[in-house]
Computed example of a mutant assay.
Amino acid sequence: MDKQLYLGLKKVFEQNLDAVLITVTSVLGSTPRKPGAKMLVFADGMTVGTIGGGCGEAEAKREALNVLSTYDSKTYSLNMTADIAQEEGMVCGGIMELFMEYMGTHTPVEKADLNKDYLAVLESHNNPVLVTVIEAAEESWLGNKLVIKTNGDVAGDLGKKELNNIAFEKGKIGSRKCQPFLICLDFEFNPCESSTPKAAYRLLVEPPTTVVQLLILGAGHIAVPLATMAKILGYEVTVVDDRPSFANVNRFSTANKVLCADFERALETIDINPQTFVVIITRGHRYDKVCLKKVINYPAAYIGMIGSRKRVKSLLADLEEEGVAKEALQKLYSPIGLKIGAETPEEIAVSILSELIKVQRGIGE
């Protein structure tokens, strides 16, 4: 969650203020923000965060003020047609579905307490998954939440045991994803398409963060196109190498961070979490081994290493002899990348990114 939004929500709860939290739950067509984007609207009209600006955001703000007058959460379809967008100079004409959640003095105590607990868990960096009811047969269930912690503990209640069970199972998958997604169910709690006339229940599953980190260990020829393409796809890119002539901002102008340091020491300063993808493409077997041994026990979303099957097999055997658990080593993706016949550094970068996207989307699980 964005720091300013987090502070805004703390202010709501600590000062007992009225506000509406707007969350983009789904999009269709060209829209300025993607699912998971949030904006907090206070009773005095002040806002924190953004769902895209312009006329669309102004309309969402007006609807949020209406929610403040009724104290009832709701979903709202924001249709940003091309004609309206042109009036504000916006280059979008899609539809954003928004969940507008009332928070404040009329919120039931148990819901308010759960929201506070969720913020506390976020602050402690325990990477909780949040599941919110955004559509239900019982309107009173709207805004009900389930907080799923990394240790498997659960807090909250969605209103029905069946919903809690489904949310928990899907939430475990959500902890490995980096983007929010919807669970749509019929009256019998069976999965259904969101495009059906009326899903009985819809749940929004939000991972701990939507910031996807790509950690590239090794700044050689593949790393350059990989960092550039990854940035275009929205990854927050960090490149590490111990050679000043390779690890510098001139070669990696699009990267968020370039660290020129010993691999082992550099890795001690980097937060590797369930939203981190690690790509090991150093210049040699020795450095690959150092990096893999250092990162293999971290809860990364993905750890991949370049190299021939023979070389990788030998390296894994060495690490196992040194005490690294076989189960941990089995999560390594190697040879790295999807098989697309890649030959050039640019093509290999595409194959690696394709595999990252496949893992991120949970395809093949």
Score class of each variant (00 low, 15 high):
178 C>Y: 04
75 T>D: 05
236 E>D: 11
107 T>L: 07
364 G>H: 09
197 P>E: 10
185 L>R: 02
365 E>F: 14
148 I>Y: 06
4 Q>I: 05
324 V>E: 08
335 P>Y: 06
313 K>H: 13
231 K>L: 10
70 T>S: 13
127 N>P: 00
271 D>M: 07
41 V>S: 04
38 K>C: 01
338 L>C: 09
138 E>M: 07
223 A>S: 13
278 V>I: 13
123 E>P: 03
358 K>S: 05
45 G>F: 02
347 E>A: 01
88 E>S: 15
248 N>S: 08
58 A>Q: 14
293 K>M: 01
80 M>S: 08
182 L>W: 10
143 G>Q: 00
160 K>S: 12
22 I>C: 13
2 D>L: 08
136 A>P: 06
194 S>G: 09
133 V>I: 15
291 C>V: 13
167 A>V: 02
202 R>V: 13
62 R>A: 07
3 K>W: 11
282 T>V: 10
80 M>H: 13
41 V>N: 00
162 E>T: 06
89 G>A: 07
361 R>C: 10
327 E>R: 09
9 L>S: 00
219 A>M: 03
50 T>Q: 09
176 R>C: 09
208 P>Y: 12
299 P>Y: 07
87 E>L: 13
192 C>Y: 03
315 L>M: 15
176 R>A: 12
331 K>F: 10
136 A>L: 12
320 E>C: 08
172 K>S: 05
91 V>T: 11
156 G>Y: 00
168 F>V: 13
92 C>R: 04
57 E>H: 06
299 P>Q: 06
37 A>G: 08
13 F>D: 04
52 G>F: 06
194 S>E: 14
338 L>F: 03
70 T>L: 05
233 L>T: 13
301 A>C: 07
174 G>P: 01
262 D>C: 07
59 E>D: 14
82 A>T: 14
149 K>G: 03
301 A>R: 00
170 K>C: 02
152 G>L: 07
